[in-house]
Amino acid sequence: MTEETAIETHIAVLSDLWEGLPEAEHVVRRAVVAVGRTPGITLPPDAELSFALADDEQVRVLNRDYRAIDKPTNVLSFPAAHGTLLGDVIVAYETLEKEAVEEGISSADHLAHLATHGLLHLLGYDHDTEAEALAMEQLETAILAGLGIKDPHASGRMMPGESHA
């Protein structure tokens, strides 16, 4: 771990589909650094993060088994119970690609948003209420702006993980 990252990030590529976004690991690491540098966010000492680049089927199974929702979603976060591991963030490739096309944004920018969103969940942020959603959106917008990524909520799109039915 370096001072620049503040969070030791372990990335597992679980699907060959991610070859379609060869810069994915770099994008995730940049997003993690940006979150760690955000004023007001306090990271535990020696924080670690597990990040998985998966496919829709892998995420569907996790979503079914842990959330009783039998369909894929773009990002899942599983907080760790204790220790230095913050938890796991898993992103589904096909859903990420589909949403990026629908929203007219690059896949890399959408991945940065999903990585940021997932990590914020592990740090205790949520969007269960309108006030929480607004606070989380503002934080995401500020973090992503620091990466040169436009406001993902400007057009009123949903939070990552919400139903796009």
Rank of each mutant, 00 (worst) to 15 (best):
F78D: 00
T84M: 05
D88V: 07
G87M: 07
L96I: 03
V89K: 10
T73E: 05
Y66W: 15
R67K: 11
H82D: 13
V89D: 08
G83P: 09
T84W: 02
D70C: 04
H82A: 14
G83E: 09
D65A: 13
Y66T: 12
F78R: 13
T84R: 15
P79F: 04
L76Y: 02
T84S: 14
N74V: 14
A80L: 04
N74A: 13
V89C: 08
D65S: 14
V75A: 14
S77D: 04
V91R: 04
L96D: 06
S77T: 00
D88C: 03
Y66H: 13
L76C: 00
A80E: 08
V89S: 08
K71W: 10
G87R: 10
D65T: 11
L86E: 04
K98H: 13
E97D: 12
I69V: 13
V75L: 06
T95C: 08
P72R: 12
K98I: 08
E97W: 11
P79D: 05
V91H: 06
A81S: 14
L85A: 11
R67I: 07
K98Q: 12
R67F: 15
P79I: 02
H82N: 11
L86H: 02
R67L: 15
L76S: 01
A81N: 10
N74D: 14
L76D: 03
V75F: 02
G83F: 04
D65Q: 15
T95D: 05
I90C: 06
L96H: 00
L86P: 00
R67Y: 15
A92E: 04
V91T: 09
L85C: 10
K98Y: 13
